[in-house]
Design a protein around this nucleic acid. Structure first.
Lengths: 197, 197
DNA sequence: ACTCGTCAATACATGAGTGTATGGTACTAA
DNA sequence: TTAGTACCATACACTCATGTATTGACGAGT
């Protein structure tokens, strides 16, 4: 294998390492050893650790979502796209996702990138719901809920399969596309306008 | 203020610090300085950092959920309890929750504690749904979804209020208590039995 | 053949944090 | 009063990681 590395090599390796071991494995020392070079190489490509981390985060932000959305656009109707999206999202546990969120708890830049990605994804889901005929304000609330559910599942490292996945996706589709007129009598409507400090 | 500390003092202070600054502020050195004592005190109460962290996590696991659930039991019917629970959960952002999850990404013990807490809470929601008349298998899926939504909201540091909280809670109640018979024709049923590798 | 740019090794100074050993203080009980 | 117990300070040896400086290797262009 090659011995000469590029900045891109370091960044790619960092993302792989992040997924495997978490963000505190993202040190010049450790990475250099694993790459079979010395820290001299690292400090040639990057001015310091902070800048390196920034570039890793930036690269993730640029690539984490767009490819999936672009691919999805080939699936015809909004309803079909939504279902494919949900199945994919809940089928495999997104390790990198979890690691990034842990990292964001320590790193303002990661936190910002994450907020941007969250917004982007939620907006996309909202657009799908609107395309599927859900009224705008309702679509916003439901898109938020669907995305939160995804995050929660990702965060508890759940990867669904088989029947559980089927049932979950079915419920999720109901959450997104249900007409909201189902048996309102059974709900605790009177207290729904109460406020909490 | 007192100068002598107990192990419990250290643990309480650790949890407060965890909420404020994250888990890598949980070092003997830093905590001692902030408490106005030396590390000599720390190493008198705890054998090493690992053991200290274990006790912090353990204490959190023991107290994080039970008080809330116990308090909730005074709210009468299951439907009412569920709504109060949801309003509370989505009204304030749970910082400690987020920090713990970030910590769990580095610490196996924290990860185990978190898994236990997740299970406990999800089971409680499931019980509420069953008490409210939802059939057992459906209740399981929906409890999972409600709890995931909570986690997602907590993780994206959202704290809702006013109309948004009202609308969100209303939708959440529908997710939990809807009868599942609402306009199934609009859903992409045919593909719901597809499997993904 | 030479030299420039690119990438990497080595050596050094520094800092933050751990864990241990040992001694000190202060309350408590007989 | 004296001894013991519980808590804390100080000093030390050690590890890991950072960042900087200096030098080395090596291919490409002229």
């Amino acid at each position: 294998m090659d011995k000469r590395l590029t900045a891109r090599d370091w960044i790619d390796f960092a993302l792989a390492t992040l997924a495997r071991e978490g963000f505190d494995a993202l040190k010049a020392d450790l990475l250099a050893r694993k790459l079979g070079v010395s820290r001299g190489s690292f400090y040639w490509h990057f001015s310091d650790l902070g800048q390196f981390h920034g570039r890793v985060i930036e690269h993730w932000r640029e690539t984490a979502t767009e490819a999936i959305i672009a691919d999805l656009e080939s699936y015809g109707a909004a309803v079909a796209r939504l279902e494919v999206l949900l199945r994919r999202a809940f089928a495999h546990s997104a390790v990198l996702e979890v690691r990034m969120r842990a990292w964001a708890d320590h790193n303002a830049e990661a936190a910002r990138a994450l907020a941007a990605i969250d917004r982007r994804r939620r907006d996309y889901i909202e657009r799908l719901l609107i395309e599927a005929g859900i009224a705008a304000p309702l679509a916003a609330t439901r898109a938020q809920l669907l995305y939160w559910a995804y995050l929660g599942a990702a965060l508890s490292r759940s990867k669904l399969g088989g029947d559980r996945l089927d049932r979950t996706v079915a419920e999720l589709m109901l959450i997104g596309l249900g007409d909201g007129a189902r048996s309102p009598s059974r709900l605790a409507v009177p207290s729904q306008r109460r406020r909490l400090g």
